[in-house]
């Protein structure tokens, strides 16, 4: 073996080890978070947690039924707002990629993606809470929706671009108008991937706390009204975690565990959808 080859082998080995080390360092926090949340949270989780309302301080037991429902309502509003807006923007970007307007929209989406969530919360407060002088589920949902929009825009654009050009040509060659080709053939072909993007975006905003603090606020009582303050898992966890009561701390861990599970489920569902899309495109 020449000296040169030995040196090259040594280098190769060194960088392999370096890569492995980087992976371990990156995974340690994730593993620790999961371990801690499961250890502390899973024990505190019980049927009451899902079905009961919060109890006053000093009384043990109780649950977060209102916050679980609240979170679902909030991300539902967010999806209703972000999917049409983001989806249509994404279709536009994919269909007219080169225009000046498209580059402005794309840039705006990227900037919005980088705006701190607390700023988005303040914005929603300014336009939806101040005028009516009341915190509301709608304001919280829209704040979360604003955070979702850029993610939906970019995934929709990317996935429509991935659809083979032959499908578009096939539809146009049969006398389809452009919009007919997009909505009848191209969009359905890209749909599984777009749904994945939406699920990932939902998972991202489901864990947001800051934009809800002065939009949806919080609510210790059962409420499904869209114009009233509403509870959410994240804000509830935040409130309980900074409280001085052990009971509430346990509830906060359980809430955190549930949040992690929701996000994990959404991510797994997203991966599943991606695999289906790949299988479809392969054949």
């Amino acid at each position: 073996m020449t000296a040169n080859l030995r040196r090259r082998k040594w280098f190769s080995r060194f960088f392999e080890i370096l890569c492995g080390l980087a992976v371990v360092i990156a995974l340690i926090p994730l593993a620790m978070i999961l371990f801690y949340v499961i250890k502390e949270g899973a024990g505190a989780l019980n049927w009451d947690f899902f079905t009961k309302m919060p109890k006053p301080v000093g009384e043990s037991g109780g649950g977060m039924a209102n916050a679980i429902v609240g979170t679902l309502i909030l991300i539902g509003i967010a999806a209703l707002f972000a999917v049409p807006v983001g989806g249509i923007c994404g279709i536009h970007l994919a269909e007219y990629p080169g225009t000046k307007f498209s580059s402005v929209v794309r840039f705006a989406a990227d900037v919005l993606n980088g705006v701190p969530s607390i700023v988005v919360g303040i914005f929603a407060y300014g336009i939806l809470v101040l005028p009516v002088k009341r915190f509301s589920a709608i304001a919280g949902g829209v704040a979360l929706g604003l955070l979702m929009v850029p993610i939906v825009v970019r995934t929709t654009e990317e996935l429509i671009r991935l659809v083979p050009g032959g499908l578009r040509e096939g539809a146009l060659a049969l006398g389809a108008t452009r919009s007919r080709a997009v909505f009848g053939v191209i969009l359905p072909a890209a749909l599984p991937g777009i749904l994945t993007g939406i699920l990932v975006a939902l998972a991202r905003v489901a864990g947001e706390t800051a934009p809800l603090l002065f939009t949806a606020f919080n609510n210790r009582f059962w409420s499904t009204s869209l114009t009233q303050p509403i509870a959410s898992l994240t804000v509830q966890v935040f409130t309980y975690a900074i409280s001085p009561y052990d009971d509430w701390h346990r509830q906060a861990w359980a809430g955190a565990f549930l949040l992690v599970m929701i996000i994990l489920t959404l991510s797994i569902a997203a991966r599943f959808a991606v695999r289906r899309l790949e299988r479809m495109n392969r054949s």
Binding site: P164, G166, L167, E169, G170, A171, A173, L174, V185, P188, A189, M280
Partner: peptide, 11 residues
């Protein structure tokens, strides 16, 4: 009508 080089059935 047109038939393309690469068959392009819709999914």
């Amino acid at each position: 009508g047109m038939v393309f080089q690469k068959s392009n059935p819709f999914p």
